[in-house]
Each structure stands twice: as structure tokens, then as C-alpha cells.
Amino acid sequence: MKPYLSIENLTQTFPDGAGGDLTVFENSSFGVEKGEFVVILGHSGCGKSTIMNILAGLAEPTSGVVVMDGQEVKGPSLDRGVVFQNYSLLPWLSTLKNVSFGVAARHPEWTKAQVAEHSTKFLAMVGLEGDVIRRKPSQLSGGMRQRVSIARAFANHPKLLLLDEPFGALDALTRGTIQDELLKIWGQMEQTVFMITHDIDEAILLADRILLMTNGPKARVAESVEITIPRPRYRTEIVEHPNYYAIRNHLVQFLGKRSKEMAGQQSEPGQSNRPTTVRIDKTDPQDDPEDKRPALRAVNS
């Protein structure tokens, strides 16, 4: 059976500015299950945002298709909510209006009071209550703005939530708080999430599965690493889980070394590049030692 969100043979080329073509990624295929939290990790410039814009329907791939819930993605839709890296709040609207205009677009049949109530509820879920929601985005801190943007996305109950480095511009403390809020709200809503980041710890904390991308050009999603740490996860506790450093080391190795080595490697022309599944679980005696050996060595050294 096909996964809930299925990316098939996605290829993206851009003119490289010198008359030639730049192939960002080629024949990339992967899937995301319903309710899954998938994080994609990769070096800057490997094409993560490009993939996300295609998933959002904001950009069209050179070739390949994206199918969600049995329907091909063609253009943007309220079914796919986006949280942009720079928040993209409308600066002339109040915080509440920034959320409620989206809610009103989703539910044209609702009364103003219903829209306002629903929006207020979701702002409260990310910790924005009272006077704050009447302020303009320019009067909010960066962290608060990103909260508004998350509330706006969740309030619309999209089938798929896309986040492009949502915490990239925030300081570490604020980032931590908002990550916790994101986890909490995700736990309540069983939302399918696809998120881009370049922060390994953030990825491990949040994800069910991490997709690893090789460096561009001709990047590909090379591995799909399962995060075998049970939920609920707390940042202070997961570091003590036996799998944490094993997984972390595997990711560090990949980003530090193998993403470069594997760059530009393709399978047979025309064949689709599916990621290899990697499962690292030191708590499971059945675990295949082949798969985790590099990670274990890294831990022990």
C-alpha cells in the first residue's frame, strides 16, 4: 500500500545562471505515514526548501509527482499548512487577525465570533493569551512571532503541516520552549508533520523518523533513520536513553562525512532513489548488529 504522503521520482533542475542546468535532486522517492512526524536533515543548499515548496504546492517540480491521501498535489491548498522560517506574518494585522484570517478562509460558514474563539484557543495553546493577541507582530519577540505562525498553521487542521527551519532564527532557550509547545500541540492533534531542520538534537527530540539528505547538487534522500526513543520525550530525559547517543552519532557521522562521500552518487539512471531504512535500537536484542555497528563504534571510542 502507498504511504499517506508519497513522493515519487521527484526531480528538480534550475538554470545554473551559466546557460546550463543545475540538478538539485533527481528521482527522489520517499513516503510519510499519516500522523507521522518526519524531519529532514541535510546541509544548507541540498534542496530541503525546494522539496518543501513542492510539497506545499508553491512550486512545481521539473518532473515527478507528490500524492497525498490519494490525490496528486497541484498547487497550494488549505490541506497543507506551512510555517515559514521567517514567520511570514502579515505585519499590518494584529496577532489575532493573523490567525483568524486563515481560520475564516478555512471555515467560510463560521460566524465572526466562532472564528475569533477558535483562533484565540489556538493562540492560547502556544502560550499567547490576553493583551498580546491584540498587538501587531512588530511588537512581538521573535519567539512569539513564530508561536503565532505555528498557531495559524495548527488552527486550520491541515492534513499535512510543513515547517521550514521554524526555529532557525531563535535563541536556544526560546527554541527549546517552542519545541516543547510544538510537541504538546502535535500530541493532541495527531497531525502529520514534515519539518526541515539542521539541528540534530531538535530532530531527535521531535521526529518519529529522520530523513537524511546527501549534499547537492544531485542530492538525494539517502537514509531514513527511525528514532527508537519512546514518547513522551523530554529534552532532559532523552539524553539518558540508551539509543540517544547511538542515533546521534549516526546522524553526526552522516552529516559530517558520508553526506559528502555520497554526494552525486546515483543508482541506475531512471531508477528511483529510495532511502535505506536505518533502525538503531540498543534496547532490542533482536536488533541487526550490521546496521548499528558504525554508530556503536562511535559511541565507544
Binding site: A56, G57, L58, G75, P76, S77, L78, R80, G81, V82, F84, N86, S88, L90, F101, G102, A105, R106, N156
Partner: peptide
């Protein structure tokens, strides 16, 4: 970005 916000909200 703002136009994209409008697009993703199907305005």
C-alpha cells in the same frame, strides 16, 4: 512570502 501565505490559505 506574504503572497505565499495567501496562496497556502487558498485566498
Amino acid at each position: 512570502d506574504w503572497v505565499n501565505v495567501a496562496r497556502t490559505h487558498e485566498l
